Structure formats: C-alpha cells, structure tokens
Amino acid sequence: MDKENRQEIERWRQLSTAELLARATAVKVANRSDSFSFCSIINAKSGKCSEDCRYCVQSAHYQTDAPIYPLKDTAEIVAAAEAAKEAGASRFSMVTSGRGLTAAEVEAVAERFAAIARRVEIKLCGSFGILDRDALVRLKAAGMCRYHHNLETSERFFPEVTTTHTFADRIATIQAAQEAGLEVCAGGIFGLGESEDDRIEMALRLRELAVDSVPLNFLIPLPGTPLAGIEPLPIREIVRSIAIFRLLLPKVCIRLAGGRETALEDFLATAFQAGADGMMIGGYLTQRGRSVEADRKFAREMQQFWA
C-alpha cells in the first residue's frame, strides 16, 4: 500500500459517520447497483475440531455444548439445498469442522456435491478448512464453484485468535483455490479483540488477494470459549468498519453473516447503508438466525432504498 492510498484511508477515518456512510452507499450503488443476494449453509460435520480458534464452540480444546456428529448423509444435505433454494438463496454451502478433509472425506463430499448438482439449481460452495490444490480440483469437478476460507483478522492479530495453524496457511489455501479455478469467499470476524487497524489490514489483504465475496461475521461470545466474556464492539464502530470495507472493496459482495442480529440489533439497515449487500440466511453453524421471511422482506426494502 503506497503512501497516497494510506492517506486516503486516513481521510475516510476522519469523516463523520454520516459522511462515511453516504460515501459508502454511493460506492455500492455505483459499482453494484441495487444487488442483494442470499446464501445458506449446512453444518455438514460438527465438533471435535483439532484447531484452537478462540471463538469457536466446535473446538475440541474447549468444554462447550456444541453438537458432535460425522458427515451428514447425502439425502439430508440435498434436502437442505432444496430448502435453501426455496428460501431464495442463490448459493448453498457445505461446511465441516476440522483442520481439513481426509482423502476419503474429499470423495464423500464430492459425492454429495454431485448429488445436489443433479437435483437442485443452485450455486455450490464449500468450507472445509485447509486443503491443497488437488483436493480443491476434485471438489470443483463435482460441482463446487466457490471456496470459503476466512482470514478471520489481520496477520498481526492472527496469533491471538489461533495457534494451531498460521495466517500463511490460510493464504496458501485461498491461493490454492484460485489456482484450482474456483471463486473465493473470504472475510473474517469483527469483535475478537482486534483494533480498527487490524480490520483495515484484513480488508487490504482481501483486496490484494482479489477475492470474489467477503463475508463479515460478528463475534457471538459463547460459553466455554476463551472469548466468552469479551465486550461487544459498539455498533458505530461496526458500521464504520463495514463502510471502509466497501470503499476498499467496491466491486465485491459484502455479506453479513453470523452474529449480525445480536451485534447490530436495531441498526441492521445502517450496516447496509454502509455498503453491505448480501446476507447469510437460515441460521449459522451452531446458532439460529432471523426468520427467512423477515430477511426477504428486509432485502426488498433495501433494494427500494438503493433504487
């Protein structure tokens, strides 16, 4: 990042919240019109994860009440994809706990992707942790078109989030997915204890990686995890960070995901004035979300706002 661009970011940070949101709205409308998209996920394999991510109830390092089960069968996953399509989602993602997939699990997941592709007209995504190019090529051949792999935070702050793998491991997986010919969905979590500088550095790295979609999650401090007692970010800080993400990433979908209801409360629309233009619907990995009907009504109203 050159000095001129750094100075521009600092100018954005000095704007009032109203001015910053107005600028972000203008950038969103200019680059993405009134676009608004939904995606949905299924927690296809849950719990007993070897990694020590300090926010996650599925980590085997912590005592939590997260569900534990192996990879769900094909029929259940196809039914979930059908339900996602019916709810209005344009994308459906399988998500599994763990550092990555074994060779046998890659084949099992590929079979499920192929079964969905035969039955449901929906774009298929996957989130399976750290994978190499060969595994990603196999999943692409089965129907997966986009791989989800968050950075979570900045490289500086990453060791405060997890120690069982590195920021470089995350970057390598994103690059392997791109080399395999896949689109990439990568973002992170706000409220882990990071600074505003960390969030900006994450946005800059995502821009450098040229990712296709950016999901933003907001920490839900869950019992049993090391971050259970952390103070939530002020709503003003959240919406300002979303606005800076939009200014730095003008052409990508910025999608609000886990924790948006509790983090933003009555200010959900403000986050979309800040430039977000997508949502995950139908619940998250271990937590329920808003009703699909409420989200669909909200999307229609936001599109009228941008028109």
Rank of each mutant, 00 (worst) to 15 (best):
G126T: 07
S127T: 15
S127I: 12
F128G: 11
F128M: 12
G129H: 08
G129S: 09
I130S: 10
I130Y: 01
I130C: 06
I130R: 08
L131I: 04
L131M: 15
D132F: 03
R133D: 01
R133W: 00
D134Y: 05
R138G: 00
R138W: 00
L139G: 10
L139H: 12
L139A: 11
L139Q: 09
K140L: 10
K140P: 10
A142D: 12
M144I: 13
C145M: 14
C145D: 13
R146C: 15
R146A: 13
N150C: 07
N150G: 08
E152C: 03
T153H: 02
T153R: 06
T153Q: 06
T153C: 14
E155H: 09
R156F: 06
F157T: 03
F158R: 02
P159H: 10
P159N: 09
P159L: 09
E160V: 00
E160C: 11
E160Y: 07
T162Q: 13
T164Q: 10
T166R: 12
T166Q: 02
T166C: 05
F167M: 02
A168S: 13
A168C: 01
A168L: 11
R170A: 04
I171C: 12
T173Q: 04
T173W: 09
I174K: 07
Q175F: 00
Q175D: 06
A177H: 04
A177C: 10
A177K: 03
Q178W: 07
E179L: 13
E179I: 01
E179K: 14
G181C: 11
G181F: 05
G181H: 01
G181N: 08
G181L: 09
G181Y: 06
L182G: 00
E183F: 04
V184S: 06
C185T: 03
C185S: 11
G187F: 03
G188Y: 04
G188V: 05
I189M: 03
F190T: 02
F190D: 00
G191S: 08
L192F: 05
L192S: 08
L192W: 05
L192Q: 01
G193P: 11
G193H: 02
E196R: 14
D197T: 14
D197C: 03
D197V: 11
D197E: 15
D198L: 09
R199P: 03
R199M: 13
I200E: 09
I200T: 06
M202T: 13
L204V: 11
R205M: 14
R205S: 06
L206W: 04
R207Q: 15
E208F: 01
L209G: 08
L209I: 03
A210Y: 00
A210W: 00
D212C: 07
D212Q: 14
N217G: 08
F218H: 00
L219V: 02
L219M: 05
L219D: 02
I220M: 14
I220H: 02
I220A: 02
P221K: 05
P223M: 04
G224W: 06
P226Y: 12
P226E: 13
L227T: 03
A228I: 06
E231F: 01
P232T: 03
L233R: 03
